[in-house]
Amino acid sequence: MNVSKDNGNAAGQRKLVVIVAMTRHMLLDFTGPADVFTNADRFLQARGANEGYEVRVVAPTYDKRVTTSAGIEVNCLYCAMDIQTPIDTLIVAGDDYCQLTIDEFTPFYEWLSGINEQNTRRIGSVCAGTFALAKAGLLDGRKATTHWEVAEKLKAQYPSIDVHGNAFFIQDGHVYTSAGVSSGIDLSLALVEEDYGKEIAVGVARQLVFYLRRPGVQAQFGNLLPVYDNTNIGQKLKLWLNERLHEPVDLNKIAENFNMSVRNLTRVLQKHTGMPPAKFIEKLRVEKARVFLEDTDMLLERIVEQCGFGNLITMRRIFLRQLAITPSDYRRAFRTSLKDTGEHELFPV
């Protein structure tokens, strides 16, 4: 088939959605958005609409194959370079980094660098697909997000990008970036709502048993404090404080333990972790509380004592600041799946 004869709004008002399956790891990176747009098209066609979506999942290489870590090989009808006509929505889904330097991906990045507002109405990414857009220069000077685990890596490699690691998705002009894996569904639902309104988007969300707009932020899923090298002051402080959070925190005592002055401790911690002692300790309290909330039935008042929050009001305020969720809601959302989660827990009598 000669794809170059098609156009961005083939068959009247149908919008061409091209999803590049970059990932070798997460199928949901590209299958999630594909399911959103194909279901939206199905709903529109059922209404007798002439408009809708034509969805093409394409490979980034000429062999048109995407081999996943799950042992599934996806044989696409097209590769990205086959698409030479206007695109309504382009989504680059996932990236496992090794693709950035492999020669067979060079034609794809040359093609991606030619994508602009004249030939593509909207450009998006899912998860670490942000790195592909960044490599092609499509994010220079823009706000963007990516998977929480690689947000700092994106900042370091592409300092011209204004990285917001907490958002599920971000729009900057005609460019949209989304966070980790399932956030591609969040973004795709938002794009459907942008095109055809809330009713169609809600219908698709219900079909997928998914929120139209998911509550919370990425911080709820990631670690507030990374795993530092054993020689890093941050790792040493984590280990020393973790068993002492229930005690009053005295910076003088901490500094003395590390043979430093309070001023020097603050300077070194800021340099190696990017945060002052008070912020570091607050995040550590939340991390410890999360373990209790996820894995135990310990009363909130007891967690307050164990983690040194002082009182429930303070704990709630800090959780909202760090995770945008209350401790009680966090427990309901993230407690172990081995617990009985019958309807009586969600809808108590």
Results as ranks from 00 to 15, higher is better:
Asn242Ala: 12
Asp250Leu: 08
Leu323Tyr: 02
Glu51Ala: 08
Thr106Glu: 15
Ala201Gly: 14
Glu282Cys: 11
Glu301Ile: 15
Lys5Met: 12
Arg244Asn: 09
Met81Pro: 01
Gly234Asp: 00
Phe168Cys: 08
Thr145His: 07
Ile200Ala: 01
Gln171Val: 04
Ala333Gln: 15
Leu293Val: 06
Ile72Tyr: 10
His25Cys: 06
Lys339Asn: 12
Asp186Lys: 06
Gln84Leu: 09
Asp82Val: 05
Leu265Lys: 04
Ala59Glu: 07
Asn223Gly: 10
Gly203Lys: 14
Ser182Tyr: 03
Ile233Ser: 08
Leu338Cys: 05
Gly48Cys: 06
Asn119Trp: 07
Ile115Asn: 01
Tyr158Glu: 02
Lys155Gln: 12
Arg316Ala: 09
Leu189Ala: 07
His25Asp: 14
Pro86Met: 01
Met260Arg: 10
Phe280Met: 07
Ala21Gly: 14
Pro107Gln: 11
Lys279His: 13
Gly137Asn: 11
Glu247Val: 06
Glu294Leu: 00
Glu199Trp: 04
Pro159Lys: 13
Ala134Arg: 01
Val150Thr: 12
Ala49Leu: 08
Val57Asn: 04
Asn311Asp: 15
Leu245Cys: 04
Leu300Pro: 02
Gln13Cys: 08
Gln306Ala: 10
Glu305Asn: 12
Thr296Asp: 11
Glu343Ile: 12
Val163Ser: 03
Arg24Ile: 02
His272Cys: 03
Arg47Trp: 07
Glu345Thr: 14
Ile254Asp: 05
Thr38Gly: 00
Leu245Thr: 05
Cys76Gly: 01
Lys283Thr: 02
